[in-house]
Design a binder for these strands. Structure first.
Lengths: 117, 117
DNA sequence: TCCAATGTTCGATCTGCATCGTACTGTTTG
DNA sequence: CAAACAGTACGATGCAGATCGAACATTGGA
């Protein structure tokens, strides 16, 4: 069970994290990991999230998220297991994962105060 | 003292905020606002931040940040005064402004644990 | 050993966005 | 009213990054 190399959480900057999370596909991936709990395997995530991207594109996005310190990749046989670096990210950027969770692209239409002007 | 139209904070999604903050110029602007308080829209900002962009580009970035709910623009005569929507952003996305503050592009080289492998 | 399955790497393409210059709007002042 | 100033709007350009397909590892099993 080798681990793919990843940055120490202390060396991760918010600049890089913001760039990583600015992409809708990567945001979807992180949310899926957060919601689905522990592990999600590479290609399974496409089916689970409904993303329609090629596997090389997925591989690219996973690398970006890993370099941004958000996720961890462990090699298990012929498969890669991906997980959120939950505790570390929460420690380094408190509240970040919570705010990612709150807003789906079209949720949150519950109660809008009348100050829309 | 008219106010330029801005979104209600409740309608702002984290997706839009992340896209807005993913740009280094806009991140610089937000940090400058956070550090210095209010300022005017024009060449003051460029001089203060050391940014070397045209004024139309600056205007563009300010619009993006405003649409993302991060800043407010007030019209005062022939000038525009820009402020950070501090309390509102903090209420909607707790901790966000703090984590923007923490990381300069090259700071934070203090103590890296030996878990780099 | 050979084959199938899973991901990564590489090169090419294409789209979105940052940037710029110019023209335009609105405001203050002479 | 005209001129100067501050900022916006718009069209054009260039580049970074998202995407894809194909070739290349690596592993597990027949």
């Amino acid at each position: 069970m080798t681990e793919v190399i990843e940055p120490a959480i202390e060396t991760v900057t918010i600049d890089v994290v913001l760039s990583a999370l600015a992409d809708p596909v990567r945001l979807t991936l992180v949310r899926a990991l957060d919601a689905a709990g522990d592990w999600t395997c590479g290609s399974d995530v496409l089916q689970e999230t409904g993303l329609t991207i090629g596997k090389s594109t997925l591989s690219h996005h996973i690398k970006v998220l890993r370099d941004a310190g958000m996720i961890r990749t462990r090699v298990n046989g012929t498969r890669r297991l991906v997980t959120l670096r939950y505790a570390e990210v929460e420690q380094r950027f408190p509240g970040l994962l919570t705010m990612l969770r709150g807003d789906g692209p079209s949720r949150c239409a519950a109660k809008a105060p009348s100050s829309t002007a």
